[in-house]
Amino acid sequence: MKINCESARPLLSSYLDGELSEAQAAPVRTHLFDCPSCRESVQEGKVIRRWFREAREDVVVPSGFSARVARRAFAGDPGLVIPTAPVDAPATGTLLPFILKLSVAAAVALFAFSLWIQSMSLPSGEDLQASDRSWMFEPPPPPAQVREVEDSEPDGHDLVEGGGPEADRALEVEGPVER
């Protein structure tokens, strides 16, 4: 099969590079016998290849390069453990409204709770008098452990000695003490 220059030219690089099958290369070869211009193109391609072949230099790799790169890659490795989220993921479409609703509910609950605390524990300003201490905080009774220690005094005198209404009441209930 004969081909003309127009068909042969695009195949010349492939022919030169050995990338054509025999079925493709045969008509190109035949054409080259007849066409000085295309032969010259192939010859020129060979010259260009020679420029590149003779420009090749040895590859120099810095010492310890592979270990250094592997260490760096593993030290700063976020890519393999953190899945990449799709850019258009509907994260803001579901999470944000939920957070907003939760915030509103929390604010309402807090406000209601503060109102309840206020109504239950504190008297109003109209009822409050300087002498009225009923609303004030009373300290809790001492812990049981401490009380046991105090009750175990040998004669209990410390509880009543020193006078005062409590001591008087004790004497009245139990009658005169024999000495």
Binding site: R9, E40, S41, Q43, E44, V47, I48, R50, W51, F52, E54, A55, R56, E57
Partner: peptide, 29 residues
């Protein structure tokens, strides 16, 4: 399309055999 060959037809010569490899690499790059 057809490789441009403006003006007089010309081709190129192979690198000078007296050139050092480094010089050929420099020109090629």
């Amino acid at each position: 399309g057809t490789p441009g060959r403006a003006g007089a037809p010309r081709s190129i010569a192979a690198p000078d055999s007296n050139l050092e490899r480094e010089e050929i690499a420099r020109i090629t790059h």
